[in-house]
Design a protein around this nucleic acid. Structure first.
Lengths: 113, 113
DNA sequence: TAGTTATGTATAAGAAACTTATGTATATTT
DNA sequence: AAATATACATAAGTTTCTTATACATAACTA
């Protein structure tokens, strides 16, 4: 995919936010959801997604629950308690980040400072 | 600095935008400007900045001009012609990125879709 | 029915962008 | 005299990603 470099570092936040919103999701479902929401502009690759999910699980941010649907495996992920707290922080960081980037790129939006 | 991971990938865009706006700047000046604009929240380290400037120069995005002020060296960077064109693209990418991230994080902002 | 696309997960090799640490040098402030 | 500010540079290591490959089942298509 022609994802710009800008998305680097944002994958964990995206995953955590989607799980906060939807309770539990499996990997493939996350990729499809992101594709729909961004109108195809952001395509999360498996090579990025699965290692990220495994790491978040190892860090205690996510819990996993294995299911079998239509004879195919699914691994449902959901936020742990500490994961829910951490998600609040990550979303605050994202808001700060977006605000700062807008200040840098659109100096006129700085008039209130 | 406690820069969140989110800034990863945004440095080139920041540099190019500041140069588009200010004509020419030197490295240290860029770090200070960013610190001011973001109220200290984003601190660009030298280890990230100088290699990034060298790479942008090697790619023909930036031109360099060496000066000596107060017996200290300064390297002023400015956008080349192709750098100016590329900056337009990068800023458009940044706008798309921010819009997509807002769609992911604040689903209510998706009502128009 | 053979082949492609979709669904679903996984990992390994390499690239890219960063952090952290270190180095050099001059000017200014304490 | 020592610390801080100004100014640039690079090397080692980490993190996050891309690209490629692998396995497996289901559904669609030529």
């Amino acid at each position: 995919m022609k994802n710009s470099q800008l998305y680097k570092g944002s994958l964990n936040t995206i995953i955590m936010k989607l799980l906060e919103e939807n309770g539990k999701m499996y990997g493939y479902e996350i990729t499809q959801k992101v594709k729909i929401i961004t109108h195809g502009e952001l395509n999360i690759t498996e090579g990025a997604l699965y290692p990220a999910l495994h790491k978040l699980e190892a860090e205690g941010i996510l819990d996993v629950e294995i299911a079998k649907v239509d004879n195919r495996m699914r691994k449902y992920y959901k936020l742990t308690e500490s994961g829910q707290k951490e998600t609040v922080n990550r979303l605050a960081e994202l808001e700060d980040f977006i605000r700062n980037m807008q200040s840098l790129v659109n100096p006129k939006s700085n008039l209130e400072f």
